[in-house]
């Protein structure tokens, strides 16, 4: 029963072309290890350098967004400051392209701003995104953003198609936020 259950779970992931999917508390150490495995997997399959770079970059920015902005977070001190943020990161391939999906909980009060930023990016052509990136690189960071603006532009810049995103309301205070990027 146990093996059957988990084999079915793994088959579902395999059928969707998922290379790996992480769900739970994400840290910088986990990000490093997953990213390393991801690069090795792509290199072993003779993926070209530019594609590996793009996929890795989107993976890092998405994961660091979860680490920074997930509303489901535990913080404390274990000899040093520790911050663990809950979320999901999924990488796969479909129709000859890689895709990276991140998911995490965000607060109602942060939703409108994030949605606005993503809608702006989704509506831009690649050369507009590039120009916007260069402009933002020269701007001082937004108050309280810890680098969000430039990170989202970097994600949109590496994407081969317009970014996809969605919000699923959990309750009055929270949404589950998802962002999918194809490369």
């Amino acid at each position: 029963m146990l093996a059957k259950q988990f084999r079915a779970f793994k088959s579902t992931l395999d059928e969707r072309g998922i290379i790996f999917s992480f769900s739970g508390y994400l840290s910088e150490g986990i990000l490093y290890s997953l990213g390393d495995a991801l690069r090795q997997k792509m290199a072993l399959e003779d993926t070209d350098v530019t594609t590996i770079k793009k996929v890795f970059s989107v993976f890092v920015e998405q994961s660091q967004n979860i680490i920074r902005y997930s509303a489901d977070k535990v913080q404390g001190t274990l000899g040093k400051a520790v911050e663990l943020s809950s979320g999901m990161v999924t990488i796969g391939s479909e129709n000859g392209q890689f895709f990276i999906v991140c998911g995490n909980i965000i607060l109602e009060e942060d939703m409108a701003k994030l949605k606005g930023r993503l809608e702006t990016l989704r509506a831009m052509a690649p050369d507009e995104i590039k120009a916007y990136y260069k402009e933002q690189l020269r701007e001082p960071p937004d108050e309280g953003s810890r680098g969000a603006t430039i990170g989202l532009i970097e994600i949109a810049r590496r994407a081969s198609a317009p970014i996809e995103f969605d919000f699923d309301r959990i309750d009055a205070e929270r949404h589950f936020f998802c962002l999918k990027v194809s490369i």
Binding site: F56, S57, V60, Q64, L137, P141, G147, I150, G151, E154
Partner: peptide, 12 residues
């Protein structure tokens, strides 16, 4: 070889 967006900002 690679840097993230917050490092890009610092490089700028």
């Amino acid at each position: 070889i690679y840097f993230n967006s917050s490092s890009a900002k610092a490089l700028m």
